[in-house]
């Protein structure tokens, strides 16, 4: 089992390096370069050449990649080409904001999704199950910007319960912060809820077909205890899997939501710098996103290895 886990971790690291290569290659393919976008209309061939020299853009791509990778590993994310600020510092604040938003969205959506999933199983094919499925499918079918604007229209503009713009700053008290991010949290919850709920339901229902569930029922356990003691522990692996994918989505996929609510997170930061052709920033953000994604999926893999009694207790 430890060997399998080590394999997974090694694979995760390799995947991360591969992802960083892809991100680097992708930024190379983008038309134009940063020198051009900094100088704009005042660009002359000479000034372009000297700026490129100064920024190190003339070195071969492989060397630039390796330089960047080594610096990245030692914690130096470099400086943004467009404004000369330290990327590490800007990212730290932004990443904190993104994690804050994603964390609260997860704190609401994960327990809610699992609870609704359990409820759906308990009342399978009856009214509560149909209602839960219907509502959550409806919410996943609507694009997130649409839900976002709907919520802004009703909850911010008409009812004025929450602010429509989620501008966060560090010295707000926690309650104030939560009120500020209420709308984006709602949107994110609605977006990820259905997926997690449906998968929880499917995973447990799948287990409920097993003969050992019948055994438990014939021992006289209550329906809820059958699900809790016998079905849920065997459905953990697929549930953790889908939860992790959705957590990763909450961190990585919030760009649209951040833009709608003008939230100072990673997504906006990256989008801004893509349009400025600021390769180091895009690389840093992309790599962090990849790391989050790969890391969370790695956790899911490890949990499914650990939760498998055949691997935990070999013959």
């Amino acid at each position: 089992m430890i060997r399998m886990a080590a394999q997974r971790i090694a694979l995760g690291c390799m995947l991360l390096v591969a992802a960083s290569v892809l991100i680097f290659a992708g930024t190379q393919i983008l038309p134009g370069d940063v020198a051009q976008s900094i100088l704009g209309r005042s660009a002359t061939p000479e000034s372009l050449a000297s700026l490129r020299e100064e920024l190190g853009l003339n070195k071969p791509a492989v060397q630039r990649y390796l330089d960047w990778l080594l610096a990245f590993l030692s914690g130096d994310l470099g400086t943004a080409l467009s404004n000369g600020k330290d990327i590490g510092e800007s990212v730290a604040g932004r990443l904190g904001n993104t994690l804050f938003l994603a964390g609260w969205a997860a704190a609401f959506s994960v327990p809610l999704a699992i609870f609704l999933g359990l409820l759906s199983v308990r009342y399978q094919d009856r009214t509560p199950d149909r209602m839960i499925s219907g509502l959550s499918l409806a919410s996943i079918s609507l694009p997130e910007f649409f839900i976002g604007y709907l919520l802004i229209y009703f909850l911010a503009v008409k009812l004025q319960w929450f602010p429509s713009v989620a501008t966060l700053n560090a010295d707000m008290p926690l309650g104030e912060k939560l009120r500020t991010i209420a709308l984006p949290v709602m949107v994110l919850t609605m977006v990820v809820l259905a997926h997690m709920m449906r998968m929880t339901r499917a995973a447990i229902l799948n287990v409920m077909q097993s003969a050992y569930i019948e055994t438990a029922e014939l021992k006289g356990l209550t329906p809820f205890n059958v699900i809790r003691k016998h079905a849920f522990p065997n459905a953990i692996a697929p549930i953790v899997n889908v939860v992790m994918i959705n957590l990763a989505y909450l961190v990585v996929g919030v760009v649209v939501v951040e833009v709608i609510f003008v939230y100072p997170g990673m997504g906006q930061y990256m989008v801004d710098h893509v349009s400025k052709r600021d390769v180091p920033v895009v690389q840093a953000c992309g790599t962090i996103f990849a790391a989050v994604y790969i890391g969370l999926n790695l956790v899911a893999d490890l949990v499914s290895i650990i939760s498998n009694p055949r691997l935990r207790h070999p013959k």
Partner: peptide, 13 residues
């Protein structure tokens, strides 16, 4: 109750 397939009728975990 004793079922046909004990292998399937025991909770694996």
């Amino acid at each position: 109750y004793v079922s046909q397939s004990a292998a399937a009728s025991f909770n694996p975990s």
